[in-house]
Write a protein that binds this DNA or RNA. Structure first.
Length: 834
RNA sequence: GCGGGCGUGGCGGAAUGGUAGACGCAACGGACUUAAAAUCCGUAGGGCCUUAGGCUCGUGGGGGUUCGAGUCCCCCCGCCCGUACCA
């Protein structure tokens, strides 16, 4: 009995694929094209199991589509800019560039050992000038078309390290290195006008029928279109404050006006009022994340200014500076209706403001309930003068109409979506190609001078942006007037890099970002695969960037990703020592059925199954696993054990089972004897499997395809020798080829077939063999199964009913009584209602 | 806080509103072997009834719709993802 030797087979076939350029995509092929893409990796150091899972899924689809006669583009590259490289520079005294490039070399070699059907000729890394230089050109295109602007915005500021912190670097309100309390600070930064596209980004979602509903819903909520009323309150200090509300119907329930801490009115007051200034200073403490802002205690400061109610000028509302009002949404000011908004409710409770109910839904809400929390549901207006008796929708219309007639407000649409701030005060990113001149202002770097290359001679011994303190790099002459000027030292958000890499894969000329016609023939990406954590930001930014290019005439593609699949994480058990240290799987051993440390034998506690992470030490490095079991077993395992959209738990047993299956599959080829007899049930199962596996792969339901292949192998092993059996063995290798490509090539060659199995066509299905002639009918009484019987497929309802009524179990349950009702579902079941 | 998702045997999971637990892992019994590994055959959701077989409970919890609910609706619990400077 022969054994499949993965170690030699993997290397041999990988070499042949590479030499023959088997997976190079052809820009000029007449075949139908397909673009399969997995989210490109950040080169963090080594490949992890999440990568293996992600790239194996795309690989199976790629190989399957090639077998279906398609010209498939399946490229790979590196999302190579970002913070970890700078952290490594600080900790290990290495240059971010050399750290990143070494990681890429390591990870490229690791990926190649998985036998992925990738077109490596299109490989790119975003940290190289031949990528980011073109990105700078595209940025300038957007700049010329008015889609880039500069404005103040808030960042996390570490007052000790004197540096900007990413949200991730703020731990419990403190800087991760200095431990200092983080403050909010305003900086002038570059923004892209994504809000100009809010409407089309929202409408476009309805065209994405091959995206998961959950992602479309998340994006819809993120864009957050809402209709409402924008209007002005007259203030007792002679000024005005403009507010926006989505609930103008509740205007008679308002009991205060809230303004953001950085609202101009608040700043003005702070100039003369030290208490107000102190309150605003207090609001500045803490980070900038929505989660932090919205969970903090609701605080307000009574400015002693009063606002006149628009429908009753004698009715005055206190104006508070409130820490839960956001300057970025609407107008930075709101009117508070405690009875019908939970945040306003809590605020009113705290500051003793009236809670006036103006929407009633009859008697459904008990009075004490209404006291406990805000009511946000539908209902009829009460306590609201001319609005009384109207429903919420009509009341909204009525108030907007009166506001517009009175000239003090108008109906508006506002979006939750904010413009995209792309400035980062960091070194390891794409330099923003702008020069600041005292005379000319912000001047774009002429395209002829691109790329603006990052200087190599930088130091990371102190926090902050090395570009900003570089002795020469930032000093340039103004491209417009020639006078000494200052280069922009901010770099671009790395999400910009990942917003167009899929275009560069499709077409990557050296003299421009892409060739329009070539890129358009590949795009959109037919199947995009990646983690659900990118459901909003990356996918929305890439959609925006693509639409922006379309608007300025660079690329005639509306949506970058026609199909999207979001995969789950790879998890593993966690282990802790008796004294509470995390232990890696390699540090423990099973002894007498309990887990102990292999160094010393101290007992180990098994913790929860969690996402593989360095901090919990529950990672498994794929490379030694590939060494031990071969690429095909690893591929088979990551495909087999869980539905791809759910989390996959890595287990030692699982990979061993996969390895055994690979060997089992291989052993089938020892039994390819020539026979002439026919085995109809096996023929049927084979063709059902061909059809079923195809459907499962197309739907990316790899675990189901795997189960079907197991069943077929089981049946082949049990079947007596026959021509059908030999044919099934020859065919199953084609079905398994996308998943276990090395074994498939080896078997293909051993069977004396010409060429590569990678180029072979998917087997044909005989439709006649898909139909069963006999079916099992479930016999139910009152919906409970009492028996099953065989019946001819397509049997008449009356016959099935008679058969069911004659069934002994049914007769017993009926006890001689006549059935009340009989439900017959042809070819499925008969349900007798007793 | 807000938005989205998930929850089925010991474990991973399968199931167009129609036979819950396919398939795999682990386990157990047996065969082969001097022995082990590998391989092969077989058993298996819980409880109950003496058996053939049957009854009953069972898809996070509670309610509902339906002849019939893992699947649809309402409420609740737990966990996960995102929350705009992690990628």
């Amino acid at each position: 009995m022969s054994r499949f030797n993965a170690l030699t087979a993997d290397a041999a076939w990988q070499k042949i694929w590479e030499e023959r350029q088997t997976f190079a995509a052809d820009d000029h092929s007449p075949k139908p094209k397909s673009y399969v893409l997995e989210m490109f990796p950040y080169p963090s150091g080594r490949i992890h199991m999440g990568h293996v899972r992600n790239y194996t899924m795309g690989d199976v689809l790629t190989r399957y589509r090639r077998m279906r006669g398609m010209n498939v583009l399946h490229p790979m590259g590196w999302d190579a800019f970002g913070m970890p490289a700078e952290n490594a520079a600080m900790e290990k005294k290495v240059h971010p560039g050399s750290w990143t490039r070494e990681n890429i070399a390591t990870m490229r070699a690791q990926l190649k050992r998985l036998g992925l059907a990738l077109d490596w000729s299109r490989e790119l890394a975003t940290c190289e000038p031949d990528y980011y230089g073109h990105e700078q050109a595209l940025f300038l295109d957007l700049f010329e078309h008015g889609l880039v602007y500069r404005k103040e915005s808030t960042v996390n500021w570490d007052p000790v390290d004197m540096t900007v912190l990413a949200n991730e670097q703020v731990i419990d309100g403190r800087g991760w290195r200095s431990g200092a309390l983080v403050e909010k600070k305003k900086l002038n930064q570059w923004f892209l006008k994504i809000t100009d596209f809010a409407d089309e980004l929202l409408d476009g979602l309805s065209t994405l029928d091959k995206w998961p509903d959950k992602v479309r819903l998340m994006q819809e909520n993120w864009i957050g279109k809402s209709e409402g009323l924008q209007f002005r309150f007259k203030l007792t200090n002679g000024g005005e404050v403009e507010v926006f509300t989505t609930r103008p119907d509740t205007i008679f329930g308002s009991s205060f006006v809230g303004i953001a801490a950085d609202h101009p009115i608040a700043r003005k007051i702070a100039e003369t009022n030290p208490d107000a200034a102190a309150f605003i200073a207090q609001c500045k403490l803490g980070g900038t994340t929505a989660a932090e802002l919205e969970t903090q205690e609701k605080l307000g400061f009574d400015t002693s200014i009063r606002a006149a109610h628009p429908f009753d000028p004698a009715w005055e509302l206190p104006v508070y500076i409130a820490n839960f009002v956001l300057m970025d949404y609407g107008t930075g000011a709101v009117f508070g209706v405690p009875a019908h908004d939970q945040r306003d409710f809590e605020f009113a409770r705290k500051y003793g403001l009236p809670i006036r109910r103006v929407v009633s839904d009859g008697d459904k809400i008990a009075p004490e309930f209404a006291e406990a929390e805000a009511y946000t549901g539908p209902g009829t207006l009460v306590n609201s003068h001319f609005l009384d008796g109207l429903d919420v929708a009509d009341a909204k219309r009525e108030v907007i109409q009166r506001a517009e007639a009175g000239g003090w407000g108008k109906g508006t649409t506002v979006w939750r979506l904010r413009d995209w701030g792309v400035s980062r005060q960091r070194y390891w990113g794409t330099p923003i190609p702008i020069v600041h001149c005292e005379v000319c202002g912000a001047v774009p770097v002429p395209k002829k001078q691109l790329p603006v290359v990052l200087p190599e001679d930088v130091s990371f011994d102190i926090p902050g942006n090395p570009l900003d303190r570089h002795p020469t790099w930032k000093h340039v002459d103004c491209p417009q007037c020639g006078k000494p000027a200052r280069r922009e030292t901010d770099t671009l958000d790395t999400f910009v890099d990942s917003s167009w890499y899929f275009i560069r894969f499709a077409s990557g000329p050296s003299d421009k970002p892409f060739d329009k016609a070539v890129a358009e023939q590949w795009l959109p990406v037919n199947q995009y695969i990646g983690g659900v954590e990118h459901a909003i930001l990356h996918l929305l930014y890439a959609r925006f960037w693509t639409r922006a290019l379309k608007r300025i005439g660079k690329l005639d593609v509306a949506e970058p990703f026609a199909g999207l699949f979001t995969q789950g994480m790879v998890t593993h058990e966690t282990y802790k020592s008796a004294d509470g240290r995390w232990l890696s799987p390699g540090e423990i051993v099973r002894r007498d059925d309990i887990l102990v440390e292999n160094d010393g034998g101290a007992p180990v506690t098994v913790g929860r199954i969690e996402k593989m992470s360095k901090s919990k030490k529950n990672t498994v490095d794929p490379e030694p696993i590939v060494d031990q079991y071969g690429a095909d077993a690893v591929r088979w395992f990551v495909l087999s054990d869980s539905p791809p959209e759910r989390d996959l738990e890595w287990t030692e047993n699982g990979i061993e089972g996969a390895w055994r299956f690979v060997q089992r599959l291989w052993r089938l080829f020892d039994q390819l004897d020539a026979w002439e007899s026919e085995d109809k049930p096996l023929d049927r199962l084979l063709h059902q499997t061909i059809a079923g596996v195809a459907v499962d792969i197309e739907g990316l339901q790899f675990n189901k395809a795997v189960a079907k292949l197991y069943s077929l192998v089981n049946a082949i092993e049990k079947a007596k020798p026959s021509a059908s059996r030999a044919s099934a063995i020859r065919t199953i290798i084609l079905l398994a080829a996308p998943m276990t490509p090395h074994l498939a090539e080896e078997a293909w060659a051993a069977m004396g077939q010409d060429g590569l199995i990678a180029d072979a066509p998917w087997p044909q299905v005989d439709p006649a063999l898909l139909v069963e002639d006999e079916v099992t009918i479930a016999i139910q009484v009152n919906g409970k199964l009492r028996d099953t019987v065989k019946a001819a497929k397509g049997a008449a309802k009356a016959d099935l009913e008679a058969m069911a009524l004659a069934n002994p179990n049914v007769q017993r349950m009926l006890g001689g009584a006549a059935p009340k009702k009989v439900i017959v579902v042809p070819d499925r079941l008969v349900n007798i209602v007793a």
